[in-house]
Write a protein that binds this DNA or RNA. Structure first.
Lengths: 213, 213
DNA sequence: CGGTGTGAATTACTTCACAGCG
DNA sequence: CGCTGTGAAGTAATTCACACCG
């Protein structure tokens, strides 16, 4: 069963998890891969194949038990526990991220917030004090944290990532447009909205051209 | 040449563009696919193949002219013009997005900001007034806008997307965790940080297990 | 029946490897 | 020479299609 699961599959699981938890909330008991697929614009075969990497959760002729599938995905994604998170960089974006309720609601506990600006250090965000980033590495050594979110200005991104990795953080979400170096044992994902816009403008400029042709 | 270009290729172009503009800033004149690949963790063959979908920009034995490649990518991605953007939802995230200098710097002009909260409407963000979202559809009809960024609470996401599409917006960047319905002629990308964290926790919980085994 | 689970078939994507050009 | 551009080869991912089971 655990024979190298493709990364694309992993990347789809959170989407399945999100849908199935919504469906569970609606009180639905059973659902087919067809119906899941309709909702997500994915083929039913893909959903069945993806899930089959992890086990046989469905019942022939019936579909998937919503509760069962929810439980399994939770387990697979490691969401049967809480994860600790620090947010580094409390500018406008960091503030928004640090106070976004969607993290806590999904098991991600923001345990600390850091900044380097003396005007920001010591102020409150969401009722919690902002700490001095100079203490970050030391703090991480005393009480380790699972995940770091980086919302500092681009030029500090590498430095902050280095501190986080030295501090033993296992995963990093980088909101900075800078691509940073990092040990490959550490999970790192980038969120750069400009790249999204640019891949969309590619298509926009084509369809504009088609019109005139 | 224009024989169906894979979407994965399009999605990599902005990354190439970003790198090449940085290299151009450094005053470098020529660069090889090998060097580009080292920087981006991509094989040189992939870079050459990707670029070859659009033309022959390199010089054998030399590499790519940085300036030439920059110009070509700009053109391919439709960045040889400015794009207009509205931000809908001026909460903490919307405020951060609306005042992020990275958009203007890359040719995306935020031309208007909307909210539904009477306490927010009429206030200033980055020196610009926030308008009433009730006027959005009408405003778009009078002066069309290319792109909409949605930073409203999740439950309003569909409604806002509907207004934007009726208003003739061509692309939407959805910061909401809600997956919305939309005409397929419209480009839509979702940014949901929780999904990123969840695909990372999948790996974290594995490597934790490996340790104990 | 209806819908899963899955090998097999297909399609998509990546890498190889080398001819050809500056 | 050195490095691009690209068919051909090799992988990877998706979809098909159907045996099987509740």
């Amino acid at each position: 069963m655990p024979l190298e699961i493709p990364e694309v599959v992993i990347d789809r699981l959170p989407m399945y998890y999100r849908l199935i938890s919504r469906i569970a909330d609606q009180g639905r008991k059973v659902i087919s891969s067809q119906e899941l697929g309709d909702e997500l614009d994915v083929t039913p075969a893909q959903i069945r194949k993806d899930l089959s990497y992890f086990g046989r959760f469905g019942k022939q002729g019936r579909g998937y038990s919503v509760q069962r599938l929810y439980d399994e995905l939770r387990l697979i994604l490691g969401l049967d526990r809480r994860w600790t998170v620090v947010v580094v960089g409390i500018g406008r974006l960091g503030r928004a991220v640090a106070s976004y309720p969607g993290f806590e609601g999904q098991g991600f506990d923001i345990v600390a917030r850091y900044d380097s600006d003396p005007n920001v250090i010591g102020t409150e965000v969401d009722g919690e004090l902002v700490r001095d980033v100079a203490h970050l590495e030391q703090d991480l050594k005393i009480s380790p944290v699972d995940i770091g979110i980086v919302t500092v200005p681009a030029r500090y991104a590498q430095e902050v990532v280095d501190v986080l990795t030295r501090g033993g953080v296992q995963a990093i979400l980088n909101y900075t447009p800078t691509r940073v170096q990092h040990p490959e044992a550490i999970e790192l994902k980038n969120i750069n909205p400009v790249l999204f816009l640019q891949s969309m403008t590619y298509h926009l400029s084509r369809s504009a051209k088609e019109q005139t042709e």
